[in-house]
Amino acid sequence: MTASDQPRPHSPGDAFVPKYRLPDWYLDHATPPADPAPVAWHSVDNPAIDFAARCRMCAAAEVVPVTIRSHQGLLVWMRGQSLDGPWCRRCGTSFIRKYSTRTLCLGWWNPLSLLVGAPAALVANAAAYRQLRRLPPPVPLPGHPQPDLGRPVLQRPPAYVALIPLACCIALIAALVSRI
């Protein structure tokens, strides 16, 4: 018997269309859905979840709206960055550490940045950090990863680059005071 001789359930020209009928025992005990259009458990765009009131990274529910700032003082001009939004404790702390380290490393290379820009960004980040520390530990939604916290700011080597312009500024002030 060859493959062409074997019986086929239906052929392309046949009018047979297979249909599945649920068994009676299932239909007798099935409960009708309460919602006419239920959202699938695996749905990415679940309309029941308001993502505007959740963490921007992990979609945790316990959030506080804060702005995380970074300041870069270049030789001639300055550049500031900020991240607005609701942040949970872990995600906000991670970005505050990253942006504060960047400010300590790159925020002092302009005279105006040394006096105004970098200290303002660091004070704003400290205030945001105090607000984030009051939150409970976050519970992210499945499929929304949380960033790595990393080391604290003062345990990161780039944070100590700020000592170079600070030492130069102190030496300059000491030289000016000694001449007077």
Rank of each mutant, 00 (worst) to 15 (best):
M1K: 14
T2I: 13
T2F: 12
D5T: 14
R8Q: 15
P9F: 12
P9L: 12
P9T: 13
H10L: 15
P12C: 05
P12M: 02
G13P: 08
G13H: 10
D14G: 09
F16G: 08
V17E: 09
P18H: 02
Y20C: 09
Y20K: 09
R21D: 10
R21M: 10
W25G: 15
L27G: 11
D28Y: 15
A30G: 13
A34M: 12
D35A: 08
V39W: 08
A40M: 14
A40R: 14
A40P: 13
W41C: 14
S43M: 07
D50V: 04
D50Q: 04
A52H: 10
A52I: 06
A52L: 10
A53W: 06
R56D: 08
C58Q: 04
A59P: 06
P65D: 02
V66K: 00
V66R: 00
R69N: 02
R69A: 01
V76G: 11
M78N: 13
R79F: 12
D84F: 06
G85I: 00
W87H: 00
T93L: 09
T93E: 07
S94R: 04
S94N: 07
F95H: 13
T103W: 00
L104S: 03
C105Q: 14
G107Q: 03
W108G: 03
W109T: 12
N110Q: 13
G117Q: 02
A118K: 00
A120F: 04
L122I: 03
N125Q: 01
A126N: 07
R130A: 14
R133V: 13
R133W: 10
R134A: 10
P136D: 03
P138F: 01
H144W: 06
H144Y: 10
H144S: 07
P147I: 05
D148K: 14
G150E: 04
L154M: 10
P158R: 03
Y160C: 03
A162L: 04
L163V: 07
L163G: 09
L166M: 09
A167V: 04
I170K: 09
A175M: 06
A175Y: 07
V177Q: 10
V177L: 09
